[in-house]
Amino acid sequence: MSTSISPSVLARRAVRVTDRARNGALFVGGLAFAVAIHVWDPTATAGPTCPFLAITGRYCPGCGTLRCLHALAHGHLGAAIDHNALTVSLLPLIVAAWISVGVAAVRAHPAREWRLPTWAGWALVVAFVSFWVLRNLSPAPFAWLAP
């Protein structure tokens, strides 16, 4: 170990501490959200209405996410896909991100950034926008995408 610590090392250490605190908070917050959505049933009680749906009468890509996650929390995969197929398809990413913030919170070393490739970003933009349009169409295959 060096006897003198350079300012850049101290700064990096401070950044690491705040990063770990933030990651820990995100991990615990995710866990709390999972428990809350398991207990609370958005269909039984009056849940928050999507402002986009209230104003335009059209679904947004996020409509049905709470019902979808509630169904998932109870293991009802079919019902979850019925409420919001996009959220279900992104579930592996959500779970992986949750695990990675948990790992980053307990690791003592600067975490290697989990870097998604560029094509994934563009693919998701296309997926969000096309899901937005398609779930508002009434013909049979598209109507299944509505919540």
Partner: peptide
């Protein structure tokens, strides 16, 4: 240089979609 793509996707799903998509575009 971080690209923040994971975070951009997560905020798009869980926080606010329109600005989240802008974040995804810059990340990409």
């Amino acid at each position: 240089i971080p690209n923040y793509l994971v975070w951009a996707i997560l905020v798009t799903i869980f926080c606010f979609l329109p600005t989240g998509i802008v974040a995804i575009v810059f990340s990409s």
